[in-house]
Computed example of a mutant assay.
Amino acid sequence: MNSNAIEQTLARRFHLERAPSFLARTASKAPIAFTRLKSAQALRGRSEAVPREAAFSIHVPLSLPFFSESWISGKFKSIAPATLGCAFLFDLSENPVVSLDTPFDSVRFYVSQAALDELSYDCGIRSPGGLHAPTFGGRDPVMYGLAQALAAAMEELGDGTALFADYVALAFHDHIVHTYGGVPAGVRTMRGGLAPWQVRRAQEFIDANLDGDPSIAQLASECGLSRSHFTRAFKQVLGMPPHQWRTKRRVERAKQLMQESLLGLVEIAVVSGFCDQSHFTRVFSQSEGLSPGVWRRLHHR
């Protein structure tokens, strides 16, 4: 299933016109997906029934109110008033349905049991036999932080890259297996950073694909590592996750082109891997404190 199919399915299920979604490519057996569910007004009725599957969804409210009623395996279950910073775990094998009688704005995290198993194997930890929340709607500042980062990326063209979604998915998995899966924290079989040749190979691969969107799986494969180990090791050595390193390199390529070529800013944006000039201007200004045009006038050779 691709991100468009997920968007269409969830938009229909929650009676929305759009349900922006990111699809991570961290697991080969099943996806990890993130979806923004937002309605500024109350809707009639309930969400559509969910096909039973061995999977879980975690809903994190970004604003209040939140869903007030639910039905789990056909049985009514009230939802206590939510607070910002809380998270609601649903077992999708129980066909959860919610009432849509209030406005809502949340990020839905989806993960299958197959994805949990595969990524846990990659991490060298045991896979949880399922996910369980001690309190329905309990506080979870980590999930709230991830939800805010995803929501911000969904609002800005070019920020919701697949590499970013992959990175968030690995952080999401690492958190939920310990918080909701009962796996002891700090137990891993793989440690250490990247060897010099692995650093060079990762950097070369990113530079060669600045105008594309390689996955963490591809980068890890180039270095002969698992996805989760590569992500941790990359940040340990270079001080930032892969998607931020790629953005840094895109800015550096743009600066070189502005200094040494006569290309226009639109062409430089495309050659450097940005979606368009607007995306280029926003990212460059955040990085350098100046717009590309001003920076070029000050530094053009």
Rank of each mutant, 00 (worst) to 15 (best):
E260H: 11
H173M: 07
L263S: 11
T281R: 13
Q148R: 14
P31V: 06
R227K: 15
A115W: 01
C275L: 10
G45H: 02
S78D: 11
C123N: 02
I72P: 01
S221A: 15
L238M: 13
H299K: 11
A87V: 07
T247E: 15
L225A: 03
D211G: 04
D101T: 11
F76G: 10
P184L: 10
V187I: 14
L10G: 03
T102S: 12
A220I: 09
I72W: 08
Q203L: 15
R12Y: 05
E94P: 00
F88R: 07
D101S: 15
E204R: 13
T189H: 06
E69F: 03
E7S: 15
A11V: 08
G129P: 07
R108Y: 09
E17Q: 13
I6V: 11
N2R: 07
E252I: 02
E204S: 15
L10W: 14
K75H: 11
G273V: 04
P65K: 10
K248M: 09
L210S: 02
D117P: 01
R296W: 02
K248F: 08
R18T: 14
A269H: 01
L265F: 11
Q218S: 14
F14R: 03
A80Q: 13
P242A: 14
Q218F: 02
I58W: 04
T231F: 07
R282K: 15
V294N: 01
E53I: 01
T26K: 00
P292I: 09
L84P: 06
L238G: 05
M190S: 08
I79R: 09
A133K: 04
H279L: 01
N4V: 04
L263V: 00
E94I: 00
G186D: 05
T281N: 11
R246T: 10
T247W: 00
E260Y: 12
M154Q: 14
A54I: 00
G224P: 02
A33V: 10
K29F: 06
A33I: 06
L64Y: 07
F14K: 01
V271A: 12
E48W: 07
Q198L: 01
Q259D: 04
E288T: 13
H132W: 12
S112F: 05
H299I: 03
R297E: 14
T179M: 13
F66I: 04
A42K: 13
T189V: 12
L10K: 08
L116A: 10
A133I: 04
D140L: 02
P61Q: 08
Y121F: 13
S127T: 12
P292Q: 09
K77F: 09
L64F: 08
A208K: 10
A27M: 07
Y110W: 08
E204V: 11
F22W: 09
A19M: 12
A27G: 06
G192F: 09
G158E: 06
S73E: 14
L225N: 02
Q8W: 05
A54Q: 15
Q277G: 09
F66M: 12
R250T: 01
